[in-house]
């Protein structure tokens, strides 16, 4: 799948924002006044920037308002609705907390839960697709939730929780990659099932339907840069989890260290999300003898 920068930025940055809301909703860190206002602004800012970025890949954004209408069937619609509702609830909670010095725990728990549901709806946009076997697994939402909450833990300075979450990320991400590498074969789809010609023997594409590129190839048969995937996987895990974990364990975590941790985590997150798209094989590639 084509790793569109707008979609990578959307899912990583908004994930961080909603992850931070998870902890702020629980009253962590225990701050008030302008410090609380600053934390809340960062959370709202990240979530909003991410959501705005997601509109950049729309072909016809003027109709985006209709995206709030199909919550009964569409995960993308559910995500849009949940994101807006979560922003609203969290905004009220944070305003009362920072400016009125009146933190309402129940409202905070609600905001935390809604933030996680929002991340879940984002992940289901991908996990629901039978056409992309690598994504079509319960590990996809699990990883989205882990990445969002780990980022939130780092941003809210909850380093013990962060260590646990980073450890889980390493384990489940490695599992997702290993399982994902055979997902297309295990899905049962092949060029033979795609064409129905398996009875006649081994099938191959003799001639493409068109001499140039098309939307399908650009969007769903993206193979550029896959040869670096193995190196990028190592780099992603080191930057997103291993280096931050080591810095938490081995250093006296001060503001400079936190900045380094966040920089490392975010770069690693971009690499992970790039791989998530670039390595995902869509079954339509079978009609092009590609994957």
């Amino acid at each position: 799948m084509h790793p569109a920068p707008s979609v990578i930025i959307f899912s990583t940055i908004s994930g961080l924002g909603f992850g931070l809301m998870l902890f702020l909703g629980l009253g962590l860190p225990d701050v008030s006044g302008w410090v609380a206002a600053t934390f809340a602004t960062v959370a709202l800012g990240l979530a909003t920037i991410g959501l705005l970025a997601s509109t950049f890949h729309l072909g016809n954004p003027k109709n985006a308002i209709y995206a709030f209408s199909q919550w009964q069937t569409s995960w993308l619609s559910r995500e849009g609705i949940m994101a807006v509702l979560t922003l609203a609830v969290f905004f009220i909670y944070a305003a009362l907390w920072a400016f009125m010095d009146n933190r309402i725990p129940m409202l905070g728990y609600l905001a935390s839960a809604m933030a996680m549901v929002t991340v879940f709806t984002t992940s289901m946009i991908y996990a629901q697709l039978k056409t992309v076997p690598r994504w079509n697994t319960a590990v996809t939402p699990l990883l989205f939730l882990l990445y969002a909450s780990a980022g939130g833990a780092l941003l809210s300075n909850q380093m013990t929780v962060a260590l646990v979450l980073l450890g889980l990320i390493i384990a489940f991400q490695a599992m997702a990659w290993l399982q994902g590498d055979t997902a297309l074969e295990r899905s049962g789809s092949s060029i033979e099932s795609a064409t129905g010609l398996g009875d006649l023997g081994k099938v191959r594409l003799l001639e493409k339907p068109h001499s140039g590129e098309n939307y399908l190839l650009k969007e769903m048969v993206y193979v550029v840069g896959r040869k670096h995937a193995a190196k990028l996987r190592v780099l992603a895990l080191v930057l997103v989890a291993l280096l931050p974990a080591l810095l938490i364990l081995l250093t006296d975590v001060n503001h400079v260290i936190v900045a380094i941790i966040m920089l490392s985590h975010i770069i690693g997150l971009f690499a992970q999300r790039w791989l998530f798209f670039a390595q995902a094989e869509h079954v339509v590639g079978l009609y092009y003898d590609a994957r």
Partner: peptide, 28 residues
Amino acid sequence: EDKCMGCGLCAWACPYGARELDEMAGVM
């Protein structure tokens, strides 16, 4: 097309490559 926002998710969901987003009009 009066409601399509050109997100492309339907094309992702189709196994057959039957949907193409028009690059000029931005609709599916």
